[in-house]
């Protein structure tokens, strides 16, 4: 059974090293939960991404509470969420006090010029590493492609995409059974 301190530190790391919003957390979470701690399979990880996206609220916090709950129930969820938001909240509080010094800092800006392309690459890689777990094949590759294009080019909300996929799955399960 996962220890509370493992859950806390894992989410503390994820929360601390996420730059530019929730999806940038995916590669780090994948490494922590699937590869390192073996808390879940890659399939289960993908399920959590879909469901966290379909729920209201902050994606990363939803992922944290779902993972914490899976490992140690309600208390596990509380520990995971606390670990996940501790560093961001402290950081923003410090910034609110010393705001200008940080924003106009040329060193910070240079670091971020290097970080931004890395964050894009970190989000792009799981598309390929997780395609196997999602059982992407030539027969069904049109589904992820269509989803990506609808969101990227047409501006369709990812929430609608998740709901549509769930509906499609439900209809298929009716035909199968």
């Amino acid at each position: 059974m996962a220890k509370y301190c493992d859950i806390f530190w894992s989410f503390f790391r994820v929360g601390t090293f996420t730059i530019g919003g929730g999806y940038a957390m995916i590669p780090l979470m994948q490494r922590e939960f699937v590869d390192k701690h073996h808390w879940m399979s890659e399939e289960e990880f993908l399920d959590q991404v879909a469901l966290s996206q379909a729920m209201p609220g902050v994606f990363a916090v939803n992922m944290a509470s779902m993972t914490g709950f899976r490992l140690r129930g309600g208390r596990g969820a509380a520990v995971a969420v606390a670990g996940n938001i501790l560093m961001p909240v402290l950081f923003i509080l410090l910034l609110a006090v010393f705001f200008r010094a940080f924003r106009d800092n040329v060193i910070v800006e240079r670091i971020f010029l290097g970080l931004r392309p890395a964050v894009v690459a970190l989000i792009a890689a799981p598309v390929f590493t997780m395609a196997k777990s999602a059982k992407v094949s030539w027969r069904n590759v049109w589904i992820p492609l269509l989803c990506a294009l609808l969101i990227w080019l047409m501006g369709v909300s990812p929430v609608l995409i998740v709901l549509a996929a769930a509906l499609l799955g439900y209809l298929c399960s009716k035909i199968e059974n």
Binding site: L46, D47, A131, A134, K135, A148, I151, A166, G169
Partner: peptide, 25 residues
């Protein structure tokens, strides 16, 4: 079995979701 089928479709969609996030950046 029904839930499993729904989850199978969700996983495919999520791959597209993540791809869209990368493309959008």
């Amino acid at each position: 079995p029904r839930v499993a089928t729904v989850l199978r479709f969700l996983r495919l969609a999520v791959i597209g979701l993540i791809a869209a996030a990368a493309l959008g950046l």
